[in-house]
Nucleic acid binder design. Structure first.
Length: 355
DNA sequence: CATCCGTGGAG
DNA sequence: TCTCCAAGGAT
């Protein structure tokens, strides 16, 4: 049993994180056993495929701006997207807002307390449902994330590659999940995976479960879990059309609601071409005389590289007509902080020395 | 089951 | 410079 060794270690070495009950809180209010479900949910959504270090600042900002799920539900989507800007995977922010509305408007502001009910919420999948059920409600749910997969793969020396071995891992994870303190156990597994049982150069010599770890015994820990080879990322190329006005700022627009950077603010771009050079966009070309900036903006998304050539022009008249033609809005630099500008768009603006 | 969906940091 | 990858979910 992992829990036997792991929970005592966790009691001594648990990281203090903003979404956890602090030792001080536990001492002051021993009757409070679990962290606020809203905070657990918010942190879990943010932590999906995102590091603790990156999440901390965003978490604090969200909790300050919207202390309760009702506050978040009342907010405009665009404000939420703006606060989320830079954190990536923007469907998470859209689902976060949608989920807040469901809880506030359909569930009386109360989070479901079962894994099954949590799983129905937008943006809440198998991992997050189990994590909330365990951490916020003390349910003995089987929490399996990348950390748990890695620890389990090593502990049992599972040499079959991911993702094929996932279901087998889940069975082992189930066997190890304790009835009591399942939330602490889950967080302990994740702490262990994040700090000791790391992907590269794991700290087996200081690991609390080293004596019962099969991979450690056979010296193959670092090689596990094995993974299917990744596909090569193609490169897409496009022109960005940065329209500037002395008086009104830059002409920006909202991206389509779904898909890549859905709902986020963008510098207008031509087609993103995967084969060969970028294409000029006739619709934008006719609006003004464009100057090509030196250099190129490079950005890598999850599944492709993106290379942008930036074109700029300065407009002094017909500003509203042009905005209408581009379906965009003028915004001054001073307003950028309030916009939902993803990192790639900030790179473009910075390249044009306009941020 | 495979693909789409961001970003910043580590090595 | 480049690869890997971090508390995954939706389709």
């Amino acid at each position: 049993m992992i829990a036997e060794e792991l929970l005592p270690w966790y009691d001594r070495h648990a990281r203090e994180l903003p979404w956890r009950l602090s030792p001080r809180q536990k001492r002051a209010n021993p009757e409070i056993l679990f962290a606020d479900p809203y905070r657990v949910w918010l942190s879990e959504i943010m932590l999906q495929q995102t590091t603790v270090a990156t999440v901390k600042g965003y978490y604090e900002k969200f909790l300050t701006s919207w202390p309760t799920v009702q506050d978040l539900a009342k907010e405009e989507l665009d404000s939420v997207l703006s606060a989320w800007a830079g954190l990536g995977y923007y469907a998470r922010a859209r689902n976060l807002h949608k989920c807040a509305k469901v809880i506030a408007e359909e569930l009386g502001g109360v989070f479901p307390d079962t894994e099954e009910a949590l799983l129905k919420l937008p943006g809440v999948g198998p991992y997050t449902a189990a994590a909330i059920a365990a951490i916020a409600f003390g349910r003995s749910a089987v929490v399996v994330d990348g950390n748990v997969e890695r620890v389990i793969a090593r502990y049992y020396a599972l040499e079959d590659p991911l993702p094929g071995v996932k279901s087998e891992m889940k069975k082992f994870a189930q066997k190890e999940t304790p009835i009591d303190r399942a939330g602490d156990y889950a967080q302990a597994m994740m702490d262990l995976g994040a700090t000791i049982c790391t992907p590269r150069s794991p700290g087996c010599v200081i690991c609390p479960i080293q004596v019962v770890c099969l991979a450690r015994k056979s010296g193959i820990a670092e090689a596990l879990p094995k993974k299917a080879p990744k596909k090569e990322k193609p490169t897409r190329r496009a022109y960005a059309y940065l329209l500037l006005s002395e008086k009104r700022g830059a002409l920006l627009r909202r991206r389509p609601e779904k898909g890549l950077l859905g709902g986020m603010t963008e510098v207008p771009t031509g087609n993103w071409i995967e084969q060969g050079d970028a294409e000029r966009n006739p619709e934008f070309e006719q609006l003004a005389q464009w100057a090509k900036l030196d250099g190129i903006v490079k950005h890598t998304f999850t599944h492709f590289h993106f290379e942008i050539t930036v074109l700029t022009t300065k407009l002094s008249q017909d500003l509203d007509v042009v905005a209408e033609a581009v379906q965009g809005k003028w915004a001054h630099k001073s307003e950028f902080a309030g916009l939902a500008l993803p990192t790639v768009m900030k790179k473009i603006l910075r390249h044009a020395d306009y941020m």
